[in-house]
Amino acid sequence: MKFKIDTFLLSIITIVIAAYFFPQWGGKSSPLPLENIGSVGVSLIFFFYGLKLSPEKIKTGLKNWKLHAVIQTCTFLLFPVIVLCFYPLLQTENDRNIWIAFLFLASLPSTVSSSVVMVSIGKGNIPAAIFNASISGLIGIVVTPLWLGLFLNNTTTSYDLGEIYSKLIIEVVVPVVLGLLLHPYWGSFAQKYNNYLTLFDKSIILLIIYKSFCSSFEENVFSGINTFEFMLIAAAIFGLFYVVYFGIGFVSTKLGFSIEDKITAQFCGTKKSLVHGTVFAKILFPNPSAMGIILLPIMLFHALQIFIISFIATHAANRKEKNPVYLYTK
């Protein structure tokens, strides 16, 4: 079986390596205004996000409410609850930092582009995938900071929900609303040049990742993580993905979902957005050096979800119509 190499994933690996060897261009002493470029870029990302959202499609998508409820519940409740189960096991400050990174991953919204693409490949319910991936990003603006606030408010970490939401309103909500208002006029333009806008999104994400890892490498943030701990993090991410994936499959079967809806629920409900994760981390964690640890789980999860879902989607596309249940838990 042939796997298509994800160029964005390769770009992330390349940019992290570049940050390791050339941290001076993204660190505190950098002559480049990467922080300002990143802030403007984040606002533009969400402006284009709002510009591409169709209010009509969102209204139409509300009809399949059971499917939407399963996906959003898993995205914003099941994921965090699983991570919360490990909170009593924390012993050191390093354990807590890694756990916070996992909670951040667990509370993120679903990703739009890859969710829709994978559902399309697997012959699932594409309109429902578009609706859920789109609405998930809007819900995440509110829910993600709330989950983090439960555990960061009473620590030495600077985390003021009022300040956080002020930044989110300015950098995220206002651009999204402006994009939605301009959708009737420029929506067709955004769809026509969607590939270029996606390239812009990825470029800003790579810039933020580069700056974050430059600061982390400069301050030796990763010195507390050895090879064994890194492998444990990877194994935990693998386990988290499959618990949610098969959990959604079980619930979908009990609710009598069609195979198309089940595919959509499992593909969208297990996705976590690297784009939202990167831009949210920039706002929620003001300390640039801490962002390296925060972004590590979501970057690994991003690679894992692409690899596994690509494999499953390809097999799902080849399923026999008379016996469609394949790899989706009975």
Score class of each variant (00 low, 15 high):
I170Q: 06
N153W: 12
L108P: 02
L51K: 07
F86Y: 15
A129I: 12
G140T: 00
F48K: 03
F189I: 14
L51A: 07
G187Y: 13
Y165S: 01
Y159D: 03
G137Y: 08
T144K: 01
F104I: 09
L78H: 01
T75L: 13
G149D: 09
P127S: 13
Q72K: 05
F189C: 11
F104G: 03
L44S: 07
P109I: 07
L182T: 10
Y87I: 02
S158F: 00
L182W: 08
E56A: 11
G179Q: 10
C74R: 04
Y185E: 11
V119I: 12
V116G: 03
S188V: 14
P145V: 04
S188G: 07
K52Q: 13
G140P: 07
N97K: 15
S110G: 03
G61H: 12
L77V: 14
Y49T: 05
W186H: 07
S136L: 07
V112A: 09
I58R: 09
K59M: 13
T156H: 12
V142D: 00
V116Q: 08
P109N: 02
I170R: 07
C74S: 15
F86A: 15
G179R: 09
V70L: 13
P109Q: 04
L78I: 15
L108E: 02
S43E: 10
G124Y: 08
S134I: 01
L44M: 14
N125S: 12
W186G: 11
F131I: 11
K59F: 13
I170C: 01
V172F: 10
S120M: 12
T144C: 09
L89I: 13
T144S: 14
G179Y: 10
N153E: 11
I164F: 00
Y185G: 01
T156L: 13
V142L: 15
V143H: 06
Q91F: 06
V83W: 05
I169L: 14
G140H: 03
I71G: 00
Y159A: 00
I169T: 13
V173D: 03
L67A: 11
N94C: 05
V112S: 01
L84I: 13
F102M: 11
V143E: 03
K52V: 05
L67Y: 08
I82S: 02
Y49K: 05
M118G: 05
D95P: 01
L182Q: 07
T92R: 09
L168V: 14
E93P: 00
A128Q: 15
I169V: 14
K123M: 01
N132P: 02
G122K: 06
Y87T: 00
L108K: 05
